[in-house]
Design a protein around this nucleic acid. Sequence first.
DNA 1: AAACATAGTCAATCAAATTGACTATGTTCA
DNA 2: TGAACATAGTCAATTTGATTGACTATGTTT
Lengths: 157, 157
Amino acid sequence: MNHQIYSELDFTSLLSFSLNALIDELHGKLSELGFGDIRPAHGFMFKYLASSGATGIELAEYLGITKQAVSKMVDYLEKSGYVIRQNHPTDKRGKIIILTERGWLVVKAKEKILTEIEGRWIEDTGIERMQMLKEDLTKFVYKANEGKLSSRSRPVW
Amino acid sequence: MNHQIYSELDFTSLLSFSLNALIDELHGKLSELGFGDIRPAHGFMFKYLASSGATGIELAEYLGITKQAVSKMVDYLEKSGYVIRQNHPTDKRGKIIILTERGWLVVKAKEKILTEIEGRWIEDTGIERMQMLKEDLTKFVYKANEGKLSSRSRPVW
DNA sequence: AAACATAGTCAATCAAATTGACTATGTTCA
DNA sequence: TGAACATAGTCAATTTGATTGACTATGTTT
Protein backbone atom coordinates (compact mmCIF):
# COMPACT_ATOMS: atom_id res chain seq x y z
CA MET A 1 0.00 0.00 0.00
CA ASN A 2 1.25 3.40 -0.88
CA HIS A 3 1.75 4.90 2.56
CA GLN A 4 3.16 8.15 1.26
CA ILE A 5 -0.22 9.13 -0.11
CA TYR A 6 -1.67 9.16 3.36
CA SER A 7 1.10 10.88 5.27
CA GLU A 8 0.80 14.20 3.48
CA LEU A 9 -2.90 14.71 3.03
CA ASP A 10 -4.14 18.26 3.35
CA PHE A 11 -7.20 19.04 5.35
CA THR A 12 -9.62 19.19 2.42
CA SER A 13 -8.46 15.82 1.16
CA LEU A 14 -8.82 14.35 4.63
CA LEU A 15 -12.41 15.48 4.92
CA SER A 16 -13.20 14.38 1.40
CA PHE A 17 -11.61 10.95 1.71
CA SER A 18 -13.15 10.33 5.13
CA LEU A 19 -16.58 11.19 3.86
CA ASN A 20 -16.09 9.08 0.74
CA ALA A 21 -14.91 6.11 2.74
CA LEU A 22 -17.96 6.40 4.97
CA ILE A 23 -20.40 6.71 2.09
CA ASP A 24 -18.79 3.90 0.10
CA GLU A 25 -18.99 1.51 3.00
CA LEU A 26 -22.56 2.54 3.78
CA HIS A 27 -23.80 2.04 0.24
CA GLY A 28 -21.82 -1.13 -0.24
CA LYS A 29 -23.55 -2.65 2.77
CA LEU A 30 -26.95 -1.30 1.77
CA SER A 31 -26.47 -3.02 -1.59
CA GLU A 32 -25.69 -6.30 0.14
CA LEU A 33 -28.94 -5.94 2.06
CA GLY A 34 -30.88 -5.57 -1.19
CA PHE A 35 -31.09 -1.79 -1.27
CA GLY A 36 -28.86 -1.36 -4.29
CA ASP A 37 -31.21 1.16 -5.86
CA ILE A 38 -30.60 3.66 -3.07
CA ARG A 39 -27.93 6.11 -4.16
CA PRO A 40 -25.77 8.48 -2.13
CA ALA A 41 -27.88 11.44 -3.25
CA HIS A 42 -30.86 9.98 -1.37
CA GLY A 43 -29.15 9.86 2.01
CA PHE A 44 -30.23 13.18 3.45
CA MET A 45 -33.72 12.78 2.04
CA PHE A 46 -34.22 9.59 4.06
CA LYS A 47 -32.75 11.25 7.10
CA TYR A 48 -35.21 14.11 6.93
CA LEU A 49 -38.24 11.96 6.15
CA ALA A 50 -37.46 9.73 9.12
CA SER A 51 -38.17 12.49 11.62
CA SER A 52 -41.70 13.00 10.25
CA GLY A 53 -43.08 13.39 6.74
CA ALA A 54 -42.34 16.48 4.69
CA THR A 55 -43.63 18.52 1.79
CA GLY A 56 -41.54 18.87 -1.32
CA ILE A 57 -40.62 22.42 -0.51
CA GLU A 58 -39.50 21.56 3.00
CA LEU A 59 -37.27 18.89 1.54
CA ALA A 60 -35.90 21.29 -1.06
CA GLU A 61 -34.99 23.79 1.64
CA TYR A 62 -33.43 21.17 3.85
CA LEU A 63 -31.42 19.61 1.05
CA GLY A 64 -30.49 22.92 -0.54
CA ILE A 65 -31.75 21.89 -3.99
CA THR A 66 -34.71 23.02 -6.09
CA LYS A 67 -38.23 21.69 -5.65
CA GLN A 68 -38.00 20.28 -9.19
CA ALA A 69 -34.99 18.21 -8.23
CA VAL A 70 -36.83 16.97 -5.15
CA SER A 71 -39.83 16.08 -7.28
CA LYS A 72 -37.67 13.89 -9.51
CA MET A 73 -36.01 12.18 -6.59
CA VAL A 74 -39.42 11.46 -5.09
CA ASP A 75 -40.61 10.07 -8.45
CA TYR A 76 -37.70 7.66 -8.38
CA LEU A 77 -38.07 6.64 -4.75
CA GLU A 78 -41.82 6.27 -5.10
CA LYS A 79 -41.42 4.02 -8.15
CA SER A 80 -38.88 1.97 -6.17
CA GLY A 81 -41.31 1.64 -3.27
CA TYR A 82 -39.49 3.63 -0.59
CA VAL A 83 -41.82 6.61 -0.21
CA ILE A 84 -45.34 7.61 -1.14
CA ARG A 85 -46.96 10.95 -1.85
CA GLN A 86 -50.12 11.68 0.10
CA ASN A 87 -52.45 14.60 -0.29
CA HIS A 88 -51.85 17.30 2.24
CA PRO A 89 -54.62 17.19 4.86
CA THR A 90 -55.48 20.91 4.67
CA ASP A 91 -53.72 22.39 1.62
CA LYS A 92 -55.08 20.96 -1.62
CA ARG A 93 -52.05 22.17 -3.56
CA GLY A 94 -49.65 20.26 -1.36
CA LYS A 95 -48.46 16.69 -0.99
CA ILE A 96 -46.75 15.06 1.93
CA ILE A 97 -44.01 12.60 1.27
CA ILE A 98 -43.73 9.80 3.80
CA LEU A 99 -41.69 6.65 4.11
CA THR A 100 -43.22 3.28 3.25
CA GLU A 101 -42.42 0.21 5.33
CA ARG A 102 -39.61 -0.55 2.93
CA GLY A 103 -38.42 3.03 3.37
CA TRP A 104 -38.25 2.52 7.11
CA LEU A 105 -36.19 -0.62 6.62
CA VAL A 106 -33.62 1.47 4.78
CA VAL A 107 -33.53 4.08 7.53
CA LYS A 108 -33.01 1.43 10.15
CA ALA A 109 -30.35 -0.39 8.14
CA LYS A 110 -28.57 2.89 7.53
CA GLU A 111 -28.55 3.78 11.21
CA LYS A 112 -27.24 0.38 12.14
CA ILE A 113 -24.41 0.54 9.62
CA LEU A 114 -23.42 4.09 10.56
CA THR A 115 -23.44 3.17 14.23
CA GLU A 116 -21.14 0.26 13.47
CA ILE A 117 -18.74 2.45 11.52
CA GLU A 118 -18.71 5.12 14.18
CA GLY A 119 -18.16 2.41 16.79
CA ARG A 120 -15.12 1.22 14.91
CA TRP A 121 -13.79 4.78 14.76
CA ILE A 122 -14.27 5.08 18.50
CA GLU A 123 -12.35 1.86 19.06
CA ASP A 124 -9.52 3.21 16.96
CA THR A 125 -9.21 6.62 18.49
CA GLY A 126 -10.97 6.53 21.85
CA ILE A 127 -14.25 8.03 22.94
CA GLU A 128 -12.74 11.28 24.19
CA ARG A 129 -11.00 12.10 20.95
CA MET A 130 -14.04 11.14 18.95
CA GLN A 131 -16.05 13.51 21.11
CA MET A 132 -13.53 16.29 20.52
CA LEU A 133 -13.51 15.63 16.81
CA LYS A 134 -17.28 15.98 16.71
CA GLU A 135 -17.21 19.13 18.80
CA ASP A 136 -14.63 20.70 16.56
CA LEU A 137 -16.46 19.85 13.37
CA THR A 138 -19.70 21.13 14.88
CA LYS A 139 -17.98 24.39 15.74
CA PHE A 140 -16.66 24.78 12.21
CA VAL A 141 -19.99 24.08 10.61
CA TYR A 142 -21.71 26.46 12.96
CA LYS A 143 -19.22 29.25 12.36
CA ALA A 144 -19.22 28.76 8.62
CA ASN A 145 -22.95 29.34 8.49
CA GLU A 146 -23.25 32.35 10.80
CA GLY A 147 -22.99 35.04 8.14
CA LYS A 148 -25.26 33.54 5.51
CA LEU A 149 -27.97 31.53 7.16
CA SER A 150 -29.50 30.33 3.93
CA SER A 151 -28.93 27.49 1.43
CA ARG A 152 -27.38 24.27 2.66
CA SER A 153 -25.42 23.67 -0.54
CA ARG A 154 -26.11 20.17 -1.78
CA PRO A 155 -25.09 17.93 1.10
CA VAL A 156 -25.01 14.63 -0.72
CA TRP A 157 -24.38 11.20 0.68
CA MET B 1 -30.35 31.00 13.30
CA ASN B 2 -31.68 27.56 13.93
CA HIS B 3 -29.33 26.32 16.59
CA GLN B 4 -31.08 23.00 17.04
CA ILE B 5 -29.94 21.87 13.62
CA TYR B 6 -26.34 22.05 14.72
CA SER B 7 -26.56 20.52 18.16
CA GLU B 8 -27.62 17.07 17.00
CA LEU B 9 -25.64 16.45 13.86
CA ASP B 10 -24.55 12.90 13.26
CA PHE B 11 -21.05 12.15 12.16
CA THR B 12 -21.80 11.81 8.45
CA SER B 13 -23.59 15.14 8.41
CA LEU B 14 -20.70 16.78 10.24
CA LEU B 15 -18.20 15.60 7.68
CA SER B 16 -20.46 16.52 4.79
CA PHE B 17 -21.29 19.99 6.09
CA SER B 18 -17.68 20.74 7.02
CA LEU B 19 -16.48 19.76 3.59
CA ASN B 20 -19.25 21.74 1.90
CA ALA B 21 -18.50 24.82 3.94
CA LEU B 22 -14.84 24.57 3.01
CA ILE B 23 -15.53 24.07 -0.69
CA ASP B 24 -18.13 26.82 -0.82
CA GLU B 25 -15.77 29.31 0.71
CA LEU B 26 -12.90 28.24 -1.50
CA HIS B 27 -14.87 28.55 -4.71
CA GLY B 28 -16.54 31.76 -3.64
CA LYS B 29 -13.13 33.33 -3.15
CA LEU B 30 -11.74 31.85 -6.37
CA SER B 31 -14.68 33.46 -8.18
CA GLU B 32 -13.88 36.82 -6.63
CA LEU B 33 -10.34 36.45 -7.93
CA GLY B 34 -11.62 35.90 -11.45
CA PHE B 35 -11.49 32.11 -11.50
CA GLY B 36 -15.24 31.64 -11.66
CA ASP B 37 -14.93 28.99 -14.35
CA ILE B 38 -13.10 26.62 -12.01
CA ARG B 39 -15.60 24.21 -10.52
CA PRO B 40 -15.38 21.97 -7.46
CA ALA B 41 -14.87 18.92 -9.66
CA HIS B 42 -11.56 20.37 -10.86
CA GLY B 43 -10.00 20.67 -7.42
CA PHE B 44 -8.16 17.38 -7.22
CA MET B 45 -7.06 17.62 -10.82
CA PHE B 46 -5.21 20.87 -10.10
CA LYS B 47 -3.77 19.38 -6.97
CA TYR B 48 -2.31 16.44 -8.87
CA LEU B 49 -1.04 18.49 -11.80
CA ALA B 50 0.75 20.85 -9.42
CA SER B 51 3.18 18.16 -8.27
CA SER B 52 4.33 17.50 -11.87
CA GLY B 53 2.47 16.93 -15.11
CA ALA B 54 0.45 13.80 -15.70
CA THR B 55 -0.95 11.62 -18.45
CA GLY B 56 -4.70 11.22 -18.77
CA ILE B 57 -4.62 7.72 -17.40
CA GLU B 58 -2.60 8.72 -14.35
CA LEU B 59 -5.17 11.40 -13.65
CA ALA B 60 -8.02 8.95 -14.12
CA GLU B 61 -6.47 6.58 -11.62
CA TYR B 62 -5.74 9.31 -9.12
CA LEU B 63 -9.22 10.82 -9.38
CA GLY B 64 -11.02 7.49 -9.50
CA ILE B 65 -12.89 8.35 -12.70
CA THR B 66 -12.66 7.06 -16.27
CA LYS B 67 -10.12 8.32 -18.78
CA GLN B 68 -13.00 9.62 -20.90
CA ALA B 69 -14.19 11.80 -18.04
CA VAL B 70 -10.66 13.10 -17.57
CA SER B 71 -10.43 13.82 -21.29
CA LYS B 72 -13.54 15.99 -21.12
CA MET B 73 -12.35 17.86 -18.06
CA VAL B 74 -9.05 18.52 -19.80
CA ASP B 75 -10.92 19.76 -22.89
CA TYR B 76 -12.72 22.27 -20.70
CA LEU B 77 -9.68 23.39 -18.74
CA GLU B 78 -7.60 23.64 -21.90
CA LYS B 79 -10.24 25.80 -23.59
CA SER B 80 -10.31 27.99 -20.47
CA GLY B 81 -6.55 28.35 -20.55
CA TYR B 82 -5.59 26.51 -17.36
CA VAL B 83 -3.81 23.49 -18.81
CA ILE B 84 -2.30 22.34 -22.08
CA ARG B 85 -1.77 18.95 -23.65
CA GLN B 86 1.74 18.23 -24.84
CA ASN B 87 2.93 15.23 -26.78
CA HIS B 88 4.54 12.64 -24.61
CA PRO B 89 8.32 12.78 -25.11
CA THR B 90 8.75 9.06 -25.74
CA ASP B 91 5.32 7.50 -26.24
CA LYS B 92 3.65 8.79 -29.38
CA ARG B 93 0.24 7.59 -28.21
CA GLY B 94 0.40 9.62 -25.04
CA LYS B 95 -0.13 13.23 -24.02
CA ILE B 96 1.08 14.99 -20.92
CA ILE B 97 -1.20 17.50 -19.31
CA ILE B 98 0.57 20.39 -17.62
CA LEU B 99 -0.53 23.63 -15.98
CA THR B 100 -0.26 26.90 -17.85
CA GLU B 101 0.82 30.08 -16.06
CA ARG B 102 -2.83 30.81 -15.43
CA GLY B 103 -3.21 27.29 -14.07
CA TRP B 104 -0.39 27.95 -11.62
CA LEU B 105 -2.14 31.12 -10.47
CA VAL B 106 -5.16 29.03 -9.53
CA VAL B 107 -3.05 26.53 -7.62
CA LYS B 108 -1.38 29.30 -5.67
CA ALA B 109 -4.64 31.12 -4.97
CA LYS B 110 -6.18 27.87 -3.82
CA GLU B 111 -3.33 27.13 -1.45
CA LYS B 112 -3.49 30.60 0.02
CA ILE B 113 -7.23 30.42 0.61
CA LEU B 114 -7.08 26.95 2.14
CA THR B 115 -4.23 28.00 4.41
CA GLU B 116 -6.33 30.96 5.56
CA ILE B 117 -9.32 28.75 6.28
CA GLU B 118 -7.23 26.20 8.12
CA GLY B 119 -5.60 29.03 10.07
CA ARG B 120 -9.01 30.22 11.19
CA TRP B 121 -9.88 26.69 12.30
CA ILE B 122 -6.67 26.54 14.30
CA GLU B 123 -7.52 29.85 15.98
CA ASP B 124 -10.91 28.48 16.92
CA THR B 125 -9.86 25.13 18.28
CA GLY B 126 -6.14 25.31 19.02
CA ILE B 127 -3.20 23.81 17.24
CA GLU B 128 -3.13 20.64 19.34
CA ARG B 129 -6.73 19.73 18.68
CA MET B 130 -6.36 20.54 15.02
CA GLN B 131 -3.38 18.21 14.94
CA MET B 132 -5.37 15.47 16.64
CA LEU B 133 -8.26 15.96 14.28
CA LYS B 134 -5.97 15.52 11.32
CA GLU B 135 -4.32 12.47 12.83
CA ASP B 136 -7.66 10.87 13.49
CA LEU B 137 -9.00 11.53 10.03
CA THR B 138 -5.76 10.24 8.53
CA LYS B 139 -6.12 7.07 10.55
CA PHE B 140 -9.70 6.56 9.38
CA VAL B 141 -8.84 7.10 5.75
CA TYR B 142 -5.88 4.80 6.02
CA LYS B 143 -7.85 2.01 7.69
CA ALA B 144 -10.77 2.35 5.32
CA ASN B 145 -8.51 1.68 2.35
CA GLU B 146 -6.45 -1.18 3.70
CA GLY B 147 -8.61 -3.98 2.36
CA LYS B 148 -9.26 -2.66 -1.12
CA LEU B 149 -6.33 -0.59 -2.27
CA SER B 150 -7.92 0.39 -5.53
CA SER B 151 -10.31 3.07 -6.78
CA ARG B 152 -10.33 6.41 -5.02
CA SER B 153 -14.08 6.91 -5.47
CA ARG B 154 -14.70 10.33 -6.93
CA PRO B 155 -13.13 12.71 -4.45
CA VAL B 156 -14.68 15.92 -5.67
CA TRP B 157 -14.10 19.40 -4.46
C1' DA C 1 4.90 -10.43 -38.58
C1' DA C 2 0.82 -11.45 -35.87
C1' DA C 3 -1.49 -10.94 -31.65
C1' DC C 4 -2.28 -8.46 -27.92
C1' DA C 5 -2.09 -4.22 -24.83
C1' DT C 6 -2.29 0.69 -23.98
C1' DA C 7 -3.33 5.96 -24.60
C1' DG C 8 -6.49 8.70 -26.09
C1' DT C 9 -10.82 10.32 -28.54
C1' DC C 10 -15.70 10.15 -30.27
C1' DA C 11 -20.47 9.22 -29.49
C1' DA C 12 -24.40 7.99 -26.88
C1' DT C 13 -26.33 7.71 -22.46
C1' DC C 14 -27.15 8.38 -17.42
C1' DA C 15 -27.56 10.92 -12.98
C1' DA C 16 -28.36 14.84 -10.48
C1' DA C 17 -29.05 19.09 -10.76
C1' DT C 18 -30.61 23.60 -13.01
C1' DT C 19 -33.86 27.37 -15.30
C1' DG C 20 -38.22 28.55 -17.19
C1' DA C 21 -43.07 27.90 -18.07
C1' DC C 22 -47.28 26.28 -16.47
C1' DT C 23 -51.65 24.66 -13.49
C1' DA C 24 -54.14 24.68 -9.48
C1' DT C 25 -54.99 26.28 -5.12
C1' DG C 26 -54.51 29.63 -1.33
C1' DT C 27 -54.14 34.50 0.67
C1' DT C 28 -54.56 39.48 0.80
C1' DC C 29 -56.69 43.73 0.50
C1' DA C 30 -59.00 47.77 -2.03
C1' DT D 1 -66.04 39.84 -2.83
C1' DG D 2 -63.39 39.61 -6.50
C1' DA D 3 -58.85 40.92 -8.54
C1' DA D 4 -54.04 40.54 -7.72
C1' DC D 5 -50.55 38.22 -5.92
C1' DA D 6 -48.19 34.09 -3.66
C1' DT D 7 -47.31 29.22 -3.11
C1' DA D 8 -47.02 23.89 -4.10
C1' DG D 9 -46.12 21.06 -7.40
C1' DT D 10 -45.25 19.29 -12.23
C1' DC D 11 -43.54 19.28 -17.12
C1' DA D 12 -39.94 20.21 -20.40
C1' DA D 13 -35.45 21.50 -21.86
C1' DT D 14 -30.77 22.08 -20.58
C1' DT D 15 -26.24 21.67 -17.94
C1' DT D 16 -22.58 19.21 -15.52
C1' DG D 17 -19.99 15.38 -14.43
C1' DA D 18 -19.82 11.01 -14.99
C1' DT D 19 -20.54 6.36 -17.47
C1' DT D 20 -20.17 2.38 -21.26
C1' DG D 21 -18.95 1.04 -25.83
C1' DA D 22 -16.59 1.51 -30.17
C1' DC D 23 -12.70 3.12 -32.50
C1' DT D 24 -7.66 4.76 -34.07
C1' DA D 25 -2.98 4.86 -33.47
C1' DT D 26 0.97 3.38 -31.34
C1' DG D 27 3.64 0.16 -28.44
C1' DT D 28 5.04 -4.66 -26.72
C1' DT D 29 5.38 -9.64 -26.86
C1' DT D 30 6.02 -14.01 -28.78
